[in-house]
Nucleic acid binder design. Structure first.
Length: 458
RNA sequence: GGCUGCGUAGCAAAGCGGUUAUGCAGUGGCCUGCAAAGCCAUCUAGUCCGGUUCGACUCCGGACGCAGCCUCCA
């Protein structure tokens, strides 16, 4: 039985889909004006893992992750670059898809873009105005009137009085209430714009997600996810918009992933302390980055450091080392004990650290079976390890290609020379060859049968 | 200031009211020509102070500390 932590109730709840056997999930995706950083990678990997587990658990999942391809920062960046905003967004959408593929993130079923959802957005704003929840402000922008929505603050645990007491932004006289937020923003000269009943302009940030999610998944759906920082105001506003427009409950379960931190501080673009995915992938294999993310629970903070990435690399090496030398057979029986433990971990709010602990226990037993020469046991355990790894999006490479990278003829020659030296009991030469390879980052491992395998360090 | 959440061994990171987490590192052993890898054993825990309980790292209260949101942000 799958349990999921719901931000709305602040506890783990038994997952009960609206329609048995089905699930609709919407995740707030990227605003595409720059390369994805590791924080974005975490969202992609975490919800990809959630999607994989839901599917494997038998739910017919519709996974929607949007792209915000129009907003103030995009306009600003395109202007700075002297290019059309569409050229900018197309470039970074392509880059995002590249990063995603590298990290073994399966594409969502639907990837709606804000600019392709303008009619739906306008329709929703008209409904909100019709319902008395939105108004045209003094500057022509359309605003949502937060005090007209009774449940405002239910997700973030805030109430309007507290919010107003802590108001830090300068008063905008175009609004009735400082906490009201923009639904439709009038275009200044030269800005991208779409025609609307209120004049040429563009959607506010929050409305696009309300429009796209309800269009793709219906007025009421199962799971809505995103980073912790979207809880307020973004998701709070989404609830106000969607429920205000449809009159129905919007979402059953809200999931929020924790931040990636650098030196105990949130990684973010505004702080400038971010590492882009492509930058990190220059130094670490993509699968290592994925494991690094999965080694922490999705709601916990994740500290980014080279030491942590290195450890993830060592951990992955341990798993692949266990698989090394065993054929990639398919269709083999798998060990149901481990499968059960794994499922139990994942069913407990997607507890990937515990699920991974199961894989390490499995690797230990596999190593023991290898030492005992039990081929049947080895095959079964290896098949189980690969199967469970696959559910997390890891361990799908050939072990040698992970451990060795590109084949290297020179290394093979050195190994042969060393085997000859060993036969001649010329230990000094054998050790010298091993040391020189070690200096080049190549580690040799002698097997009892006289053969030698190798792997690259780190 | 308001609202969240967190505080576990050398490091990272989980579960759990009484029984091995797991990975890395350390120590001892097996294996090895020596290593590496692997296996076995093993040392380091639960911020502090109260309370509940036969028993608390685990539940409750308080203190302290940290992070996040309250402003664009995954």
């Amino acid at each position: 039985m799958l349990k999921i932590y719901n931000t709305l109730t602040r506890k783990k709840e038994l997952f009960q889909p609206r329609i048995p056997g089905q699930c609709g999930m919407y995740v707030c995706g990227m605003t595409v004006y720059d390369y994805c950083h590791i924080g974005h990678a975490r969202v992609m990997v975490v919800f990809d893992t959630v999607a994989r587990h839901l599917r494997h658990s038998g739910y017919a999942l519709t996974y929607v992750r949007n792209i915000t391809d129009i907003d103030d920062k995009i306009i600003q960046r395109a202007h700075d670059n002297g290019e059309a905003f569409t050229d900018l967004t197309e470039r970074f959408i392509a880059a995002m898809h590249e990063d995603e593929r590298a990290l073994s993130v399966l594409p969502p079923d639907i990837e709606p873009k804000a600019t392709q959802s303008i009619p739906d957005i306008i329709a929703m704003i008209e409904t909100l105005i019709g319902n008395g929840l939105a108004y045209v402000g003094g500057n022509g922008d359309v605003f949502y009137a937060v005090n007209k929505f009774a449940h405002y603050g239910q997700l973030s645990g805030k109430n309007l009085d507290d919010l107003q007491a802590g108001e830090r932004v300068g008063i905008d006289h175009a609004k009735h209430n400082p906490l009201d937020f923009v639904l439709w923003k009038m275009a200044k000269t030269g800005e991208p714009a779409w025609p609307s009943p209120w004049g040429d302009g563009r959607p506010g940030w929050h409305i696009e997600c309300s429009a796209m999610s309800t269009c793709c998944l219906g007025n009421h759906f199962d799971i809505h996810g995103g980073g912790m920082d979207l809880q307020f105001p973004h998701h709070e506003n989404e609830i106000a918009q969607s429920e205000g427009a449809t009159g129905e409950t919007f979402v059953n379960i809200w999931m929020h992933n924790g931040f990636v931190r650098v030196n105990e501080e949130k990684m973010s673009k505004s702080l400038g302390n971010f590492f882009t995915v492509r930058e990190v992938l220059k130094a670490y294999q993509p699968e290592v980055v994925r494991l690094f993310i999965l080694l922490s629970h999705y709601r916990s903070p994740l500290n980014y450091s080279n030491e942590q990435l290195d450890e993830a690399g060592i951990a992955l090496t341990r798993l692949y080392t266990a698989l090394r030398g065993l054929a990639l057979a398919t269709g083999l029986a798998i060990d149901l004990g481990y499968v059960g433990r794994f499922k139990q971990a994942m069913d407990d709010d997607f507890n990937t650290p515990v699920a991974l602990a199961v894989l390490f226990d499995l690797a230990r037993e596999l190593n023991t079976a290898k030492a005992a020469g039990d081929a049947e046991q080895c095959a079964q355990l290896a098949a189980t390890l690969r199967h469970l790894g696959g559910l997390l999006g890891i361990l799908q490479s050939d072990a040698d290609s992970f451990l060795q990278g590109d084949a290297d003829e020179a290394i093979e020659q050195q190994i042969q020379a060393r085997i000859a030296a060993k036969k001649a009991k010329d230990w000094a030469l054998a050790d010298q060859i091993r040391d020189s390879l070690k200096a080049a980052g190549v580690i040799l491992e002698d097997a009892p049968n006289g053969t030698t395998t190798w792997r690259r360090e780190g």
